[in-house]
Design a protein around this nucleic acid. Structure first.
Lengths: 253, 253
DNA sequence: CGCCACATTGATCCTCTTCAAAGCGTGTGG
DNA sequence: CCACACGCTTTGAAGAGGATCAATGTGGCG
């Protein structure tokens, strides 16, 4: 597991602040806390950030690149539970998972920052961090919503619907951190990755993507996604965006 | 939504205590707190305990009967995210979900108890409830593990494997509260319910159950399940029980 | 140039769905 | 006590969605 500590941290936790501000209210103290995070690490594609059943190490925030929470069956079948996009946290929670429930794999080269200070703030009884706790709660709730969407896709949607739904979810997650527009975003995933996320075969993913292309609903090439008709895609997939901000308003008030 | 308050509460929260003690260490204070819960309600089969996107009301513990967290697609397709068996909690968490992420439906007539006092203890800053917080954390972590198992089943397992896996998981969850032996437990579910949980059609569930019966791996009739060869089932499904207790030991120490 | 990872295509197979009907058990009303 | 209805299970036949196998195409890169 080759950890490389970048001396002058190019990537900063700004993206994390952006995300948390998008889903909750974050005070100046909390913002300063994130801005002070500087223990940045890099990993190559394919590296494991976390190994299933290991004790969860230090909490982290992804600054750049993509990761996926995965599990394998003994015969090699792989399922992706969830993606991690920049700005999202890993093991940062009021409930520090003692044992990792899944392996986390880098899908691309990535950078993350150690969130030890955030974790300490969370677990302290200092009221100054109440808004931070709220934001983390909302983030955690969002994470659960993503898992439920995944179950819905896998259990009751067709291949066609699954892909539309997943792409819309990814767009919205990138939208939260300012890395997407309504119609365009970077998606550096192979079709194999998409297949492991949607529970399909590579070949079938390829064919469905071609269909979506033919129907002028989607372009997907060179790591760039272009949703040519987001409304149509949402109708196909019965896609509804989670409402984190509304949740934030009601919490603790 | 006909709520019936039973005057002399026949069902007590003993089963909740039993479950939490099985997955964590629970002090006398916490045990007394649960024992004092007395606001018991009953619901008929088919009633909704929680409606998706409603604000989450009072936290509860299921005392008897079965429930399921579900979501529907517009055309009527239904997916069950997770079951709830007696002893399990709903909305009891350091993170009180502001908006319910799924509808919760009573699969059988059931009883639950209002857990307002538990929630207040959790959110207080009284150190006396630290072990309670730990137990709730472990329970919440277990809940997430069940969601991940569900994703694995739906995404990458065959119908045959899914049913074996799900039945073993249910057995273990009932085992936690003393409502199952290694091989026998009550399972008052229709095949339709099983289908909605496994993402299969009713007809196919029926055929797979028959196959398991023919192979002398399983009996399932009159609401009773009999796993005739749990080891073989586990091998088929690559089933591994979650380890909540080990987790509990490491937490906060 | 040649290698490698990834995308694409065609053909065939099979798991699972759908549709339709018939059995079965239980509770209810006449 | 029987008739009937209703919910659930079971069975058969046909069809579709997706998997698998195998090969070819394509682009980046040492």
């Amino acid at each position: 597991m080759s950890l490389v500590r970048s001396r002058p941290p190019i990537a900063r936790a700004d993206i994390v602040i952006r995300r948390l501000k998008a889903i909750a209210h974050l005070g100046d103290d909390a913002e300063a806390l994130f801005a002070s995070l500087s223990d940045v690490h890099s990993l190559p594609a394919g590296a494991e950030l976390v190994t299933e059943r290991d004790t969860m190490e230090r909490p982290r925030y992804l600054l750049s690149g993509w990761a996926a929470k995965v599990r394998w069956l003994p015969d090699g079948r792989r399922q992706i539970f969830n993606f991690m996009v920049p700005g999202e946290g890993l093991g940062v929670c009021m409930r520090p998972n003692p044992l990792a429930l899944s392996t986390v794999v880098a899908l691309t080269p990535l950078q993350y920052v150690d969130a030890g200070p955030v974790q300490r703030a969370l677990l302290s009884d200092d009221d100054r961090w109440n808004d931070l706790r709220e934001a983390i709660h909302v983030a955690s709730s969002l994470g659960e919503a993503y898992l439920l969407s995944q179950i819905m896709r896998l259990g009751r949607q067709t291949a066609y619907e699954r892909l539309c739904h997943l792409l819309l979810e990814i767009r919205d997650r990138l939208l939260l951190v300012g890395m997407a527009s309504e119609t365009h975003f970077a998606m550096p995933m192979t079709q194999e990755t998409l297949a492991d996320a949607t529970g399909l075969s590579i070949v079938h993913v390829n064919r469905i993507l071609q269909q979506l292309r033919r129907e002028r609903l989607l372009e997907l090439q060179a790591g760039k996604a272009h949703l040519r008709d987001p409304a149509a895609l949402a109708a196909i997939a019965d896609y509804k965006a989670p409402q984190p901000s509304e949740a934030a308003h009601r919490f603790r008030h």
